[in-house]
Amino acid sequence: MRMDKKIILGIDFFILAGTLALIVFSVGYVQPLLIAPQDGYESNNGAVLFSFEKADVILIDDNIDFSSPDEYHVEDNLVINLKPGVYYWKAVGVLPSEIREFKINSEISLKLKQDGEGYEVVNAGNERLNVDVYSEGKIIGNVVLDVDGSEGVFGDKFVGRSDE
């Protein structure tokens, strides 16, 4: 009788331990693996490589609640161009992955080219620019340039700042 009880307890243990081990292995196996970008990644370059395994959807949002995510159905790595800001991303396969945060820094970059008598101002950064045009120390105009946008201007000083 005592032997029977031992056998039953042994079977209990075997079944529970086996089930637990299999569940742990299965969850580990099917949970998406996030490779890049790392948590806390920061860059001035808006082109971000998303690298992951064991998922077929990635979600990117500027809100950690993922209330309005951009959804990408992909089975491989992909590069997405993002505007400056703080983002959260996760991958979803059989199970959802952890959530990672990353940041695209804004880069304000202004290029000036001689263009006949005047100049051409070019937005070489990753945010829309608001450019003040000065002549002899006074503001004489203002132009707004989209990313990669350009415009012909006359003046002797040009100062660009974010227009977002």
């Binding site: 804004s106 945010e127 974010s162 977002e164």
Partner: peptide, 16 residues
């Protein structure tokens, strides 16, 4: 060469 010399470019980060 003159065009290259006539170009100026500067950047700053972060923007805000």
């Amino acid at each position: 060469l003159f065009l290259v010399e006539g170009a100026m470019a500067i950047g700053i980060t972060p923007g805000r």
